[in-house]
C-alpha cells in the first residue's frame, strides 16, 4: 500500500466513526456598501488605514495625465502586461528588479477588506520587486464583499492571485512597524472611473 492509500484509509476509518456534518453555507459578512459610492469610500478608507495612498481619477484621460506627472519623479518604470497603453508613462522602462517604479492593473478590488486582486497574467515580478507600486483599478470592478469578489473570478483562475491590501510591512523587530520589508514600501492605488 502506498503512503496515499494508508493516509486515506485512516482518514476514511476516522470519518466513518463520526457523524458527517453539513457545510454551514455561504460566509455572510458585514455590509460594505451596497451602492457604488459607499463601496469606493470603504475601499479607500481600508486601504489608507493599512498604509496605502489612494487617488481617484475621472476616466482614462485623467488617469493617463496623473501617471505621466507622477512618473516624472522616477528614473525608470516597469509596467504590467495588462496595463492599457494610455496609462504607460514616457520615462525609460527597466526590468522589474531594477525599476524605481512599477505599474500594474488590478483585476478587481474588495471594499470589505481594502484589497486589490492582482492576477498573475499581469506579471508577478512588477507587483513585487519595485520599491514603489502604482496599481490601477476600474471603479466598476470594486466588489463590496470578499466572497463576491472570489465568486466573480472563480471560473477563470490564473496560476496565482495576490491580494494586495497595503505596503509590505513587518512588526517582527521589537513590535515596531516598518514598511518596505520585501515587497513595495509604497502602494498607490488609482481608482479609475
Amino acid at each position: 500500500m502506498s503512503a496515499r492509500e494508508r493516509v486515506l484509509e485512516r482518514v476514511r476509518s476516522a470519518c466513518q466513526e463520526r457523524e458527517r456534518t453539513e457545510h454551514p453555507g455561504a460566509f455572510e459578512s458585514r455590509d460594505a456598501g451596497a451602492d457604488p459610492a459607499s463601496r469606493l469610500t470603504t475601499l479607500a478608507t481600508m486601504l489608507e488605514a493599512a498604509g496605502a495612498e489612494v487617488v481617484r481619477v475621472d476616466g482614462m484621460v485623467e488617469a493617463g495625465k496623473w501617471v505621466r506627472r507622477f512618473a516624472n519623479d522616477f528614473e525608470s518604470v516597469s509596467v504590467g502586461v495588462t496595463v492599457p497603453s494610455q496609462l504607460r508613462p514616457t520615462i525609460s522602462t527597466k526590468g522589474s528588479h531594477e525599476a524605481a517604479l512599477g505599474l500594474s492593473m488590478a483585476r478587481a478590488a474588495i471594499a470589505e477588506t481594502g484589497s486589490l486582486l492582482m492576477d498573475a497574467r499581469d506579471g508577478r515580478r512588477t507587483q513585487l520587486l519595485v520599491p514603489t507600486h502604482v496599481v490601477f483599478v476600474y471603479q466598476a470592478d470594486v466588489h463590496p464583499t470578499f466572497r463576491g469578489a472570489l465568486s466573480s473570478v472563480r471560473a477563470d483562475l490564473p496560476s496565482a492571485i495576490g491580494l494586495h491590501s497595503g505596503p509590505s510591512k513587518s512588526a517582527d523587530i521589537a513590535q515596531t512597524l516598518v514598511t518596505g520589508v520585501h515587497g513595495p514600501g509604497r502602494l498607490i492605488v488609482v481608482l479609475v472611473a
Binding site: L157, S159, G162
Partner: peptide
C-alpha cells in the same frame, strides 16, 4: 488586521 497585506492564492505552475 482585517486581512494580511499580502494574500496568495496559488493554483499551479505558470501558464
Amino acid at each position: 488586521q482585517p486581512i494580511g497585506n499580502y494574500v496568495s492564492f496559488i493554483q499551479g505552475p505558470k501558464k
